[in-house]
């Protein structure tokens, strides 16, 4: 059995000679193993990064190797939200709604500079990082990230899933946004997260 082939400290197996085809293991481990290897993605592809996501899913890079064969285009049957591309303010409530529709346990990958920080779009229209809207597990840098980078992110996520503890219910609590403002982190924090940095400070003057 696949479980025995990869003995990990988590697996407690009975001697196969006596076991008659059954093993004992920690339930946590078994469940996590199952989850980590069949993460169904919900591609929230908006822009250029979505094209690289398609390339990752296509024949050369073949996401199916990671148990991601099935693209869950319905958020209700998906485990990982892969936000590939920029998220303008007009799309923000849509992203939030899709995240809320996904069942627990769920994870989010923020693919690309735009999804993670707003990237090169530090202007009036673009959300400066989707972590101000939904909680993110893995950030993938790059503009766009190469398919290898996305695959690396998925493997990181698999590692994270393997470390889940069922007793740790807090990790799976649905984040309830503040009903008044719909924000789930304080406004001051959002302003701090979306501050200008690097090159975008001197480049705010038009016409020189």
């Amino acid at each position: 059995m696949g479980l025995i082939d990869a003995p990990a400290p988590n697996v407690v197996s009975v001697e196969p000679a006596h076991s008659e085809g059954w093993i004992t293991t920690r339930l946590d481990f078994l469940v996590n193993w199952g989850r980590a290897n069949s993460l169904w993605p919900m591609p929230f592809g908006t822009a250029c990064c979505a094209i690289e996501f398609m390339a990752t899913a296509a024949s050369k890079f073949d996401l199916a190797r990671f148990g991601m064969e099935r693209m869950g285009y319905s958020p209700r049957q998906a485990d990982v939200l892969i936000c590939a591309g920029r998220v303008p303010f007009k799309l923000a409530p849509v992203l939030r709604r899709i995240w809320q529709q996904m069942p627990q346990p769920k994870w989010a990958i923020s693919m690309g500079a735009c999804a993670s920080t707003g990237g090169m779009f530090d202007n009036y229209a673009v959300v400066q990082g989707i972590d101000t809207i939904i909680p993110v597990d893995v950030y993938v840098p790059g503009c766009p990230p190469r398919p290898e980078a996305l695959i690396h992110a998925i493997m990181m996520l698999q590692k994270k899933v393997m470390k889940d503890r069922m007793s740790d219910t807090a990790a799976r609590m649905e984040m309830e946004p503040d009903p008044e403002s719909q924000l789930y982190i304080p406004p001051s924090r959002i302003d701090a997260l979306s501050q200008q940095f690097g090159n975008s400070i001197p480049q705010t003057r038009s016409g020189q």
């Binding site: 303010f89 923000a92 400066q128 101000t132 809207i133 924000l183 406004p187 302003d191 979306s194």
Partner: peptide
């Protein structure tokens, strides 16, 4: 930014 996000959401 916070206000923009609040209005959008």
């Amino acid at each position: 930014r916070a206000e923009q996000l609040r209005q959008a959401l």
